[in-house]
Design a protein around this nucleic acid. Sequence first.
DNA 1: CTGTTAGCGCCTTCAC
DNA 2: GTGAAGGCGCTAACAG
Lengths: 342, 342
Amino acid sequence: MPEGQRKSKQPTIREVAAHAGVSPMTVSRTLSGGVYVRPDVQERVLRAVRELGYHRNEIARSLRPGQSSGLIGVAITNLGNPYYGNFALGVEEVAARHGRRIILGNTGEDPARERQLVSDFIGRQVEGLVLVPSGRSGEHLSSDELGGVPLVLASRSLDGLDADTVLLDDVGGAAGGTRALLDAGHTRIAFLGNARSVFTGERRFEGFVRALAERGLVPDDALVERDQQDVAAAETATRRLLDLDHPPTAIFSANNRNSIGVLHEVARRLRSGAALEAMPALASFDAFELAGLMPVPVTIVDHDPRELGREAARLLLARLGPEPSVEPSRRVEMPVRVVTAT
Amino acid sequence: MPEGQRKSKQPTIREVAAHAGVSPMTVSRTLSGGVYVRPDVQERVLRAVRELGYHRNEIARSLRPGQSSGLIGVAITNLGNPYYGNFALGVEEVAARHGRRIILGNTGEDPARERQLVSDFIGRQVEGLVLVPSGRSGEHLSSDELGGVPLVLASRSLDGLDADTVLLDDVGGAAGGTRALLDAGHTRIAFLGNARSVFTGERRFEGFVRALAERGLVPDDALVERDQQDVAAAETATRRLLDLDHPPTAIFSANNRNSIGVLHEVARRLRSGAALEAMPALASFDAFELAGLMPVPVTIVDHDPRELGREAARLLLARLGPEPSVEPSRRVEMPVRVVTAT
DNA sequence: CTGTTAGCGCCTTCAC
DNA sequence: GTGAAGGCGCTAACAG
């Protein structure tokens, strides 16, 4: 924490009062609606405020008992990912509409950093927390640890932690995307996704398996690649798949990064003279731009991260009433849409 | 501002002190490094802290004279745009490294909202402001209005406002992208960009004109479209261009949104049986994924918004020393790279 | 080494 | 209508 900084030139309520020839109380009252203050006095006060460039010190204000900071702590894993950028935007939007500001931290998928952030947020008296958890454990997130500050988990759930949660319909979406491939006649379908340890990775694989099962199929282990964290790894995994003696005719990709990797590899092969007919169809959980311009058929499991953020904020705000709402925690699954790119 | 909220269950320093059988001062000292506190007493204090789940109230802390809030206000135009998401990430990254947190607001290109946000940030005693301005005017951003809080402008400059600014090399980048098209033999090059009123729109057009001038060319008014705000409008503009009797053979697009629009229209025409040879080459200011998979040649003017954010934070932090640095304001132009997509 | 005093900026409560 | 205390949680400064 930075210590001993620049003396802010911010005028205080007392200076405004002196400037206007009234008491601080009169300034305070004027600024809070002006009931019980004579109009002409208000005029004078407001003029002083303008002349001095006075801004009420919200920090001092929120120190008073019964006042809240008006701050919502938001910790996400990667702001640079448009998915989370839009998520944060949704939270900000709803929070702002309710007079709250968000204070934002990026965890970079690092549980230690997440822990620091959460602790700092609590220290800053946030009214609530929205968190995309980066680990599997939620011990630092118990209601006790948080001093009763309400918490909403987003995108991922946490074992053994009872908290409001917003998720995508991962299972349904993955099943839907897979069904689209099955409906197109594919039976050898590969799966590209996150590591087993990632919550969404597990759920989307579950949806994939479920859709296959509906048609009496089971996943072929040789066609399942689950450890790609970035585009390059996805590209390599795709290469391996397509080099198999008996390659898949379609690929279900559990996220955006993997989908891009698949397409890069497909493009590489086409440039090398591979036949378009030999290229796999793709179904992708997560949209990506220009899907309609791809050489192979692309099905998208689309969803709205911004709406997910809005919903997270809504759940949180519902807990911020005067009464420390004791309702049981809620779990919301946001719908997804299966669309074939045009 | 939300009033009269839930009484936080946060324990205070006094409760910790009572629990540990010491005075609040001893707790304070222990928590700030523990010099001049007997080790065994520290033990007891820290145990009490743990048992009570105590977090130091940073708000009360920063109320003390000479203390700063550790908060940087960041107001950007559209968090949902990956460009600004990465920008915010860069700011957060550097701020966090210096013990600061960012408080984030989205202006949605609305000057009124920007004004509110800035005022609120000042009220929250931010140490500094990073702003992507949404209007042309900066009257609410004078050093007086801001109470001396340092300000860094990003991406766009503001007439008549003397403040630290980080920009992209818009002119050089646009010229470079245009040159790539000229080098490929194109002479009828269209320009798609922002409205004239947008700072970057003006600068990128300037670069475009400059590159043409180097080859003794001038822009053809019929080939300049400058009012597209979204993909759909860009698509329409492209349609008009390609429908001309004497259509352009290449398009320089001043931003990501326009580039995507161009490509959508190109795809639409190809699907309708248009000849690939009749399609324009594209140079795009701003990168987009899968550029290498496009049916037409694509040149990218690439840059790193995250680094832009880092630089903005650096400029700001340089002003946060104990002395209210009176150095003249700096203007930094971040380099861009012209690359042909692979 | 530890405790007491005082005050940061504001607003609730109680006088006038 | 307006003003004077008092205190929110914390920590410099000053005892002891």
